[in-house]
Computed example of a mutant assay.
Amino acid sequence: MSVLIAATALPCGLVIGLLLGALGGGGSILAVPALVYLLGQTPHEATAGALVVVAVGAVGGLLCHARAGRVRWAAGATFGALGTVGSYVGSRCSAALDAKVLMAAFSGLMLVVAAGMLLRGRRDRRGRAEAAASAVVAGAAPSSRPPAGDVRDSGAPRGSREPREPHGSRDPQDPQHPRDAPDLAGSRRPRPLRTVVTASSVGLLTGFFGVGGGFVVVPALTLVLGLEMPVAVGTSLLVILINSTAALATRAGTGALDWPLLALLAGCAAAGSHLGNRLAGRLRPQTLTTAFAVLVTVLALAMAATTLPDL
């Protein structure tokens, strides 16, 4: 590895890590373009090498979320294990695909990711606006609860408490009935076929493109397993780690990887991730998301312009 390559890998890794730490995912999609256009790797080497960066980034984030109790180990391990078959198939298909076709497909993936980031930012902004409006309405409405200690209308002796309903004794027509609530593990009962198909699709994406796929894993864990968003984000890192490790093992015999370069890139990404976590609290998430989506869109269009004419 030359000094010039090392000097180029340093800022690339930091930028990828900053985006991973500040946005919680998505930054690893920049690893493949950086490896191909800035660090001189072939598309097949880049999609394999990017898995190393993805795995290292997943480990760092997973440790942070695990300390905060936001990882469902059993659900994540099961979902990741179900995706290893798709990861194997995706890796084999990617290795057999023409390099130009692979990069053209990757540019299309980047456009999808950019659109998804913008839509997610728009939904978050709309949700905050609705929550703020609800808070204003709730604050303006007069309270119907009697003052503390006022039992004139309660029909109960002073100092007595209303008995608590036992779990499951509510009216089944009540929308807050316990049967509609998530279980104690924070997830609804999954549908086996739907879970297998979704997990295999996520693994296929990771194996084929060499990306973590957090932009797909998090919604999948939310919709299929019913995890709450913070828990889904933490658990998704376990899924990404399993899928990327399986894909990397599948590609191990398909070609030599530049391990010193990948170690430098992954190390810089890990350092940048810590900086990104601190940066996230100082900048507006909407600004970061929009800037990232614009950057990914520009890169995707540039990649498409260089690859599509040669197909």
Score class of each variant (00 low, 15 high):
residue 147 P to G: 11
residue 150 D to F: 08
residue 122 R to K: 07
residue 142 P to V: 10
residue 164 R to E: 13
residue 180 D to E: 05
residue 131 A to Y: 13
residue 135 A to V: 02
residue 133 A to F: 11
residue 141 A to P: 00
residue 146 P to M: 08
residue 151 V to T: 12
residue 143 S to W: 05
residue 169 S to N: 02
residue 166 P to F: 11
residue 154 S to W: 08
residue 161 R to N: 02
residue 121 G to N: 13
residue 143 S to A: 12
residue 130 E to Q: 13
residue 158 R to Y: 11
residue 142 P to C: 04
residue 169 S to H: 09
residue 169 S to K: 04
residue 176 Q to D: 14
residue 131 A to D: 12
residue 125 R to W: 05
residue 173 Q to P: 00
residue 151 V to N: 11
residue 173 Q to V: 02
residue 146 P to N: 04
residue 131 A to H: 14
residue 146 P to T: 05
residue 159 G to E: 12
residue 140 A to R: 13
residue 167 H to L: 12
residue 151 V to P: 00
residue 125 R to Q: 13
residue 180 D to W: 14
residue 163 P to N: 08
residue 138 A to I: 06
residue 145 R to Q: 10
residue 146 P to E: 05
residue 150 D to S: 05
residue 161 R to C: 06
residue 172 P to Y: 05
residue 179 R to H: 02
residue 138 A to F: 11
residue 137 V to Q: 12
residue 165 E to N: 04
residue 155 G to L: 04
residue 161 R to L: 15
residue 175 P to M: 02
residue 151 V to G: 02
residue 167 H to C: 01
residue 145 R to D: 05
residue 176 Q to A: 12
residue 162 E to H: 09
residue 176 Q to P: 00
residue 130 E to W: 13
residue 156 A to P: 00
residue 138 A to Q: 15
residue 166 P to C: 01
residue 174 D to Q: 03
residue 129 A to Y: 06
residue 170 R to L: 08
residue 139 G to S: 13
residue 163 P to S: 09
residue 138 A to W: 05
residue 142 P to I: 02
residue 133 A to L: 15
residue 133 A to H: 13
residue 135 A to H: 14
residue 174 D to E: 07
residue 174 D to M: 02
residue 165 E to S: 11
residue 141 A to T: 14
residue 152 R to W: 07
residue 137 V to Y: 11
residue 139 G to W: 08
residue 142 P to Q: 10
residue 139 G to A: 15
residue 147 P to M: 07
residue 137 V to S: 10
residue 134 S to T: 08
residue 137 V to W: 13
residue 140 A to S: 11
residue 139 G to C: 07
residue 147 P to I: 01
residue 165 E to W: 12
residue 166 P to A: 11
residue 124 D to G: 08
residue 174 D to G: 00
residue 169 S to P: 00
residue 153 D to I: 00
residue 179 R to C: 01
residue 175 P to Y: 03
residue 148 A to V: 09
residue 136 V to T: 11
residue 137 V to E: 15
residue 137 V to P: 00
residue 153 D to E: 05
residue 156 A to N: 01
residue 154 S to K: 01
residue 142 P to L: 13
residue 129 A to T: 06
residue 133 A to T: 03
residue 131 A to L: 15
residue 174 D to C: 01
residue 136 V to R: 15
residue 145 R to K: 06
residue 159 G to A: 06
residue 176 Q to G: 08
residue 124 D to C: 01
residue 171 D to G: 02
residue 162 E to D: 04
residue 152 R to M: 02
residue 130 E to R: 15
residue 163 P to T: 05
residue 128 R to A: 14
residue 165 E to F: 14
residue 138 A to P: 00
residue 159 G to V: 06
residue 146 P to S: 09
residue 125 R to C: 01
residue 124 D to I: 05
residue 160 S to F: 14
residue 121 G to E: 08
residue 161 R to H: 10
residue 158 R to A: 14
residue 179 R to S: 03
residue 122 R to S: 14
residue 167 H to S: 09
residue 158 R to D: 11
residue 162 E to L: 15
residue 155 G to Y: 04
residue 167 H to Y: 13
residue 127 G to P: 00
residue 171 D to H: 07
residue 174 D to A: 03
residue 172 P to A: 07
residue 139 G to T: 03
residue 148 A to G: 07
residue 177 H to K: 01
residue 173 Q to E: 12
residue 139 G to Q: 07
residue 173 Q to C: 04
residue 128 R to H: 14
residue 123 R to G: 01
residue 126 R to G: 02
residue 131 A to F: 13
residue 133 A to Q: 13
residue 177 H to G: 00
residue 142 P to G: 03
residue 154 S to L: 14
residue 127 G to R: 15
residue 155 G to H: 08
residue 149 G to F: 14
